[in-house]
Structures are given as structure tokens and as C-alpha cells.
């Protein structure tokens, strides 16, 4: 087995490990207290500082924030909950999507 093939296999294995521990893509967060557009700007500011986050959307009707990650990036649930708390809200549920 030549060196490039071994390197490729390692890269694939490493990639699979990362994806398994940190599901990436889009995350939906049900949030308590999300009633005010002006105050919810804090969510954009706080999540916007994270390198892993590409963008977030805020749905005031359903009290859900949608977090879009950079390709191959994600945040674990504890970090998401902490960032939501820093923004002034409480997490009700976190759902991972694709």
C-alpha cells in the first residue's frame, strides 16, 4: 500500500470521527423568552463571533433560532446552550438537521 493511499484513508477516518462527535449542517434551537426583535439582536452578535457559525435566523413566531454552520463545522449542545444564555434566553430543545 503506497503512502498517498494510507494518507487518504487516515484523512477519511479522521473526517468520519469529527462528523460523528460534532454533527454539522443546521441546528434548530427552541428558545424560551424570544419575544422581542430588538433584544434578539443579541443572538446575532453572540453567535456571529463564533468561527463555526455561518449565519443564524431568528423565528419570533415559533421561538426558534436556526444556526447555519460553516462547512464541516459545528458546536456542541453545551456551547450552544451557553451562547443562548449569554444572549439572554433559555434553551428548550436543540434539534440537529442537515
Amino acid at each position: 500500500m503506497n503512502k498517498p493511499l494510507i494518507t487518504l484513508l487516515f484523512a477519511i477516518l479522521l473526517s468520519a470521527t469529527v462528523y460523528g462527535s460534532h454533527p454539522s449542517g443546521t441546528v434548530y434551537v427552541d428558545v424560551n423568552g424570544l419575544v422581542c426583535d430588538f433584544c434578539a439582536r443579541a443572538l446575532e452578535k453572540v453567535f456571529g463571533r463564533q468561527d463555526e457559525v455561518d449565519a443564524i435566523n431568528v423565528d419570533l413566531d415559533n421561538k426558534v433560532i436556526t444556526i447555519h454552520f460553516e462547512e464541516g463545522q459545528s458546536l456542541d449542545e453545551a456551547t450552544i446552550s451557553e451562547l443562548v444564555a449569554d444572549s439572554g434566553y433559555d434553551v428548550r430543545a436543540i434539534r440537529y438537521g442537515s
Binding site: 428558545v31 424560551n32 423568552g33 419575544v35 433584544c39 421561538k63 439572554g88 434566553y89 433559555d90 428548550r92
Partner: peptide, 9 residues
């Protein structure tokens, strides 16, 4: 104190 509820704060 802050109370975050599903429909209010």
C-alpha cells in the same frame, strides 16, 4: 432575575 417563558419574558 429573568424569567424566560415560551411566550413571554
Amino acid at each position: 432575575q429573568r424569567w424566560n417563558k415560551p411566550e413571554s419574558q
